[in-house]
Simulated assay, not measured.
Amino acid sequence: MSSASEALDLFDVLDYKSIAAHIKKEFDMVYGPGWQCVVGSNFGCFFTHSKGTFIYFCLETLNFLIFKGAASG
């Protein structure tokens, strides 16, 4: 949530792409590459993720979905 809060301080609340990119870059740097981030007020999703790497929360008016992709196969 601290990464999301920082991104909201840096970017306009409607600049979803920049907010998501900021969070993804921070997660890749801190926790290793492969993180994905979705930011918005209304979205659906379906994907495969690594166990223990799925984060979903709301902050202000936005929903945040952060996950690390899992290799298929």
Rank of each mutant, 00 (worst) to 15 (best):
A20G: 07
G44F: 05
A71Y: 06
K17S: 15
N63K: 10
K68R: 15
G69A: 15
G32T: 14
K51C: 08
L65S: 04
K68Q: 13
I23T: 10
F54Y: 09
K25V: 08
F46I: 02
M29P: 01
S3L: 15
G44V: 03
V38S: 03
G73E: 11
K24T: 09
G40S: 01
K17R: 15
L65Q: 03
S18C: 09
V30Q: 15
G44A: 12
W35T: 12
P33L: 12
T53D: 01
A20K: 07
F57G: 12
T61D: 12
V13L: 04
S5I: 14
I55N: 05
F47A: 12
C58Y: 10
A20F: 03
L8Y: 08
D9Q: 14
F64S: 00
H49M: 04
D9K: 14
K51V: 13
S2F: 08
F47T: 11
D12F: 04
S41M: 10
L65P: 00
I55F: 11
T53V: 01
I66F: 03
F67W: 12
S5E: 11
G34R: 07
G40F: 00
G32N: 12
H49Y: 09
F54L: 12
F27H: 06
S5W: 01
F11R: 07
L62Y: 05
V13G: 09
Y56E: 06
S2W: 02
G52C: 04
D15A: 14
E60Q: 10
F64L: 00
G40C: 00
F46A: 07
E26T: 15
H49F: 08
S72F: 12
I66P: 00
L59H: 11
D15M: 09
D15R: 09
L14S: 15
V39H: 00
G44M: 03
L8W: 07
G40K: 01
D12P: 05
D9S: 14
F43H: 04
E26R: 14
D9A: 13
S3D: 15
S72Q: 13
E26F: 08
S50Q: 02
D28E: 03
K17D: 14
T53M: 03
L62W: 02
C58H: 11
G44R: 05
A20P: 02
G40R: 01
S5F: 10
N42Q: 07
G32V: 15
D9E: 14
K51G: 02
I19E: 08
D12K: 11
F57A: 08
G40E: 00
L62G: 10
V30E: 11
F43C: 07
G52Y: 01
F11Y: 15
M29C: 11
A20N: 08
C45K: 01
M1V: 13
A21K: 15
C37V: 15
D15H: 08
A70C: 11
K24V: 03
A20M: 05
K68Y: 06
M1W: 04
D12L: 10
I66Q: 01
C45S: 13
N63M: 04
A7Q: 08
D28C: 07
T61W: 01
Y56S: 09
S18D: 04
W35A: 07
F43V: 03
C45I: 05
A4L: 06
L59E: 06
G32D: 09
N42E: 06
L8T: 15
I19Q: 08
M29N: 14
D9N: 15
F64D: 00
